[in-house]
Simulated assay, not measured.
Amino acid sequence: MGEQPIYTTRAHVFQIDPSTKKNWVPASKQAVTVSYFYDSTRNSYRIISVDGTKVIINSTITANMMFTKTSQKFGQWADSRANTVFGLGFTSEQQLSKFAEKFQEVKEAAKMAREKSQDKVDIRSTRIDLNNDTFDFKQDSGPASPGSKQASSFNGTDDEKIFKVGPEMLLMKTEHESAAEQSSSSRKWEAELQSLREKNSILVEDLHQSSTKMDVWKKQVSACKEESDALRQKIAQLEYQYQEAGQEQQRNAELSVRVQQLEAELRDKEQEVENLRKQAEIIPQLMAECDNITSKLQVTESRKVELESRMDVLHVDVEDSRQKQSGVKAELKKLTEVLDAKIEELHDFRHGLSRLGADN
């Protein structure tokens, strides 16, 4: 089956600065996918993260690793095989807690897998020892004769054995030693051949796993490309919205300038209305002066008529002057009414300007 993802999240990836061993160096420009992978063939767990085509995390989890929360949204762990310290920055505290819980679960699973593998290795080594003991026993008991076996069992030291046996026994012993050496060398070659076969099988498995990983990475790369395309489209939309916002701000600025111009025009109109009011207040004085001048003219004319006409016509002239004065008063009254109408129109014009300013 190869490696399969069992948990995936997104985070900002950091690595410790190898020169200072204190500062964090960002391994990705943005949040990337971080996944737990389980290898069923090796019974191992790994944390893998890919940024584009670059592998930024490839950490095999062991039972001795420890994930530490250094803040509410940041955690780290040390990888002795990679000789570095990885750090992950999450967008929320819940994501960090979930990742830490998963790390603890994977760590316990790796610990149990290690214990099982050690038990299997112990059992296998015990079987190999037993097989080697059986093989040595056959090699020792096969070629020897009953007499030599009894001699090796009951006669004292090796020197005493060599002294008591004859030349034929020494020659037989030399042949037995050469055969034992050949059998030991053959066993070594068989062991090396077996180890090479095991290495070859491991390499084949690694090749299969690497091809599987390449497929997974290709899928992740295609997903990252799709995500980057979506982000580019979103950036284009945001830029278009930003341009529209700038145009709207420009329109608002133009409207504010127009409002200021209208307010200035309104102030000018109010000043004109105030001037007209002052002029309207002066009109009664002008009318009074006009009345005085008219009366003086009438007196002057009457005097002239009195001097030029007879005394009898004086009363008629006075009556005529009175009638003329009444006509002038009527005309002045009409003029006053016209002025009042103009003043009312000015008031209406001012109210209209006030409403126009309020609407703006």
Rank of each mutant, 00 (worst) to 15 (best):
D39P: 00
S44H: 07
I56K: 07
S44R: 14
S44P: 01
Y38F: 15
K22S: 12
V50Y: 04
V50W: 03
V34F: 04
F37S: 04
F67Q: 01
I48F: 11
I57H: 06
Y45A: 05
T41S: 11
I56V: 15
F37K: 03
K54E: 14
I47E: 03
N58E: 12
K29T: 09
S28P: 02
W24I: 04
M65E: 07
A31S: 14
Y45Q: 03
D51M: 02
T41D: 13
N64W: 08
V25C: 08
V32I: 15
N64K: 14
S28R: 01
F37R: 07
K54F: 09
S28G: 02
V32T: 04
S40K: 09
I56M: 10
I48H: 10
Q30F: 08
T33A: 04
I56D: 08
K29L: 04
M65W: 11
I56R: 08
V50P: 00
Q30M: 07
T41M: 09
P26C: 00
I48P: 00
N43C: 05
S49Y: 02
R42E: 13
I61F: 10
R42T: 13
Y36W: 14
Q30K: 13
W24E: 04
N23M: 06
K54M: 07
D39F: 00
T53D: 14
V55C: 14
T62R: 14
S28T: 15
T68Y: 10
F37D: 04
A63L: 09
Y36F: 15
Y36V: 14
N43W: 01
A63D: 13
N23I: 09
V32G: 00
T60C: 06
V25S: 07
D39R: 00
N58Q: 11
S44N: 10
G52E: 12
Y45G: 06
N64D: 13
T68L: 12
S35I: 03
I48T: 09
K29D: 12
W24V: 03
D51H: 08
V25P: 01
Y45R: 04
T53P: 01
I48A: 06
F37P: 03
M66G: 00
I56Y: 12
A27N: 07
V32W: 00
V55P: 01
S59L: 05
Y45E: 00
V55E: 15
I48R: 12
T68I: 15
S35Y: 02
V25E: 11
S44C: 11
G52P: 02
R46A: 13
A27Y: 09
R46P: 00
R46K: 14
N58T: 05
V25T: 14
A27W: 02
T60R: 12
T68A: 09
V34P: 04
